[in-house]
Design a protein around this nucleic acid. Structure first.
Length: 489
RNA sequence: CGGGGUGUAGCGCAGAUGGUAGCGCGCCACGUUCGGGACGUGGAGGCCGUGGGUUCGAGUCCCGCCACCCCGACCA
């Protein structure tokens, strides 16, 4: 009874924290704003990594690794970029400690000639490097990704959703022309969207950011936006078309086929451990985590129910064929015959951890040739023939994956509201929240005013957004399309 | 950086008016249990966040500091 989760409707933030901590995904650390990702949480992250990594490789990208430290001077080369990141940098100024009467102190004689910035993102060091790698159109495109940690000194942090240090992948590509760079940006956006929907069971809206919300240094920022159960939006991934901004800042040019020198076109794109937070919030309930089968480190757990050890021995034996079948079918299964906990304890524990399917095998089943099957998402129980268990589990895992997505999609659809005037706009945001589709006059001023008054920001302008004549919900000026407003993480 | 809150056993908490620390869970041992977080008995475990002050005496009162959580401003 020690691992009770705060009900979601009572305190959403606490509910989220409880799940992250009690399901063993992560822990607070001794360092402010930094978290420890625990083995179970990291196993999920590793699944995410391996799927995405496969998709990047399949589209021609290679992994590489660039330094954690970036000389301060690099950082200031691109004006908008500095502006965007200056306020949240960790800076290394010294390289040595010494003992003094005050204990261990920074050795003031060991000051760096030039301060190093702990990377908040790697565009600058990477473009400085690319300059040496690119001379001709034959060197392009250059398609590189790195898995790394980055640091952004956040005022306020939340496990997985916003921590000072986080893990991510950042892709940085160089192209010989604008069209190809934009196509790359969109290709990655599709990879992110497909991953979110097919693997995480998380419906997302693809769109572009407004100037206000754009990545510092980008010409255009594309994003996938998801909607969490509390009606707040979460940016789950971004893909940026950087134009020639970084090429110009770092003087990266190539000779085209005509022998004329041109600046390179660039993209960058990333998803982070924030996806873990999205995954938690998208499907979980008051019993704990709910994981989509495709990302669950353990998809099926089998719990033996017994009184005497002779019974356990029989169950151990009776379960072997099924275990082999499941493993043979590539299903990640765990048979938990650990005697240190009772079945009831295990049921609760595996529910908390979000394992998609739980099976129970006891004396009654041995007599009847059956096995109990419980799905985590609906907590529905049924007894099936042991001989049919493999097929049943296979289809059940598929069903759960599909139904998690459908449920999330239904929620998103139900939480998307078209509004036509500002009173309604406020009312929806203060009430059910969610995505609000409203006309916007396209100006930065209006966007900022709306943000000040309602806390809602423009999450994105959806791709292939239908054109529609209307009036801006705030200024009343003419507008050609609705954009998505929401309060966001 | 503002507002609020919390620091006492691994976790969650209780300790009126100051008198030398307790409960639940967890942990260890043994026994009974085991189809939804079992029970009994016996144990182990504390610099009461930290520095000063008041006092014969401080978990408790006073002043400072620190850390963390929640809510805002900033942000993936």
């Amino acid at each position: 009874m020690s691992k009770v989760i705060t009900p979601r409707e009572k305190d959403y933030s606490q509910w989220y924290n409880d799940i992250v901590i009690k399901a063993g995904l992560a822990d607070y650390s001794a360092v402010r704003g930094c978290m420890v990702i625990k083995p179970y949480g990291f196993a999920i992250w590793e699944k995410i990594q391996s799927i995405l990594d496969g998709k990047f490789k399949a589209t021609g990208h290679s992994n590489a690794y660039f330094p954690l430290f970036i000389p301060k001077s690099f950082f200031s080369r691109e004006a908008a970029h500095v502006e965007g990141f200056a306020k949240e940098c960790a800076i290394v100024t010294h390289y040595r400690l010494k003992n003094s009467d005050k204990g261990l102190v920074v050795d003031e004689d060991a000051r760096l000639e030039e301060e190093l910035i702990v990377r908040p993102t790697s565009e600058t060091i990477i473009w400085n490097t690319y300059k040496g790698w690119i001379q001709s159109y034959r060197d392009l495109p250059l398609l590189i990704n790195q898995w790394a940690n980055v640091v952004r000194w956040e005022m306020r942090t939340r496990l997985f959703l916003r921590t000072s240090e986080f893990l991510w992948q950042e892709g940085h590509t160089a192209h010989s022309n604008k069209e190809e760079a934009i196509a790359e940006t969109l290709k990655i956006l599709d990879i992110y969207a497909d991953f979110a929907q097919e693997w995480m069971g998380m419906p997302v809206i693809k769109g572009t950011k407004t100037e206000n919300e754009r990545f510092a240094g980008a010409v255009e920022t594309y994003c996938i936006e998801a909607l969490m159960q509390d009606g707040k939006a979460l940016q789950a991934g971004t893909s940026h078309f950087l134009g020639q901004n970084f090429a110009k800042a770092f003087d990266v040019t190539f000779l085209n086929k005509e022998g004329v020198s041109e600046y390179v076109w660039a993209t960058s794109w990333g998803v982070s451990t924030r996806l873990m937070g999205a995954l938690v919030m998208q499907h979980s309930d008051n019993e704990g985590l709910v994981l989509p089968p495709l990302l669950a480190p353990i998809q099926v757990v089998i719990v033996p129910i017994y009184r005497e050890f002779e019974q356990l021995a029989k169950i151990n034996e009776a379960i072997q064929p099924l275990l082999k079948e499941l493993e043979g079918a590539g299903i990640r299964v765990k048979y938990d015959n650990d005697d240190k906990h009772t079945p009831g304890w295990k049921f609760a524990e595996y529910e908390l951890k979000g394992i998609p399917v739980r099976m129970g095998l006891g004396p009654r089943d041995l007599e009847n040739g059956t096995i109990e099957v419980v799905r985590r998402d609906t907590r529905q129980k049924e007894n099936i023939k042991l001989s049919q268990a493999l097929e049943h589990v296979k289809s059940l895992l598929d069903q759960i994956q599909t139904s998690l997505y459908e449920k999330a999609l239904a929620f998103q659809t139900g939480s998307t509201t078209r509004v036509n005037d500002f009173a309604e706009f406020r009312q929806v945001l203060d009430g059910k929240g969610g995505f609000v589709l409203a006309h916007w006059d396209g100006t930065r001023e209006t966007e900022e005013k709306i943000k000040e008054e309602t806390k809602a920001t423009i999450r994105c302008i959806p791709l292939n957004n239908p054109k529609e004549e209307g009036k801006c919900v705030y200024s009343g000026k003419p507008s050609q399309q609705r954009v998505i407003f929401a309060k966001a993480y």
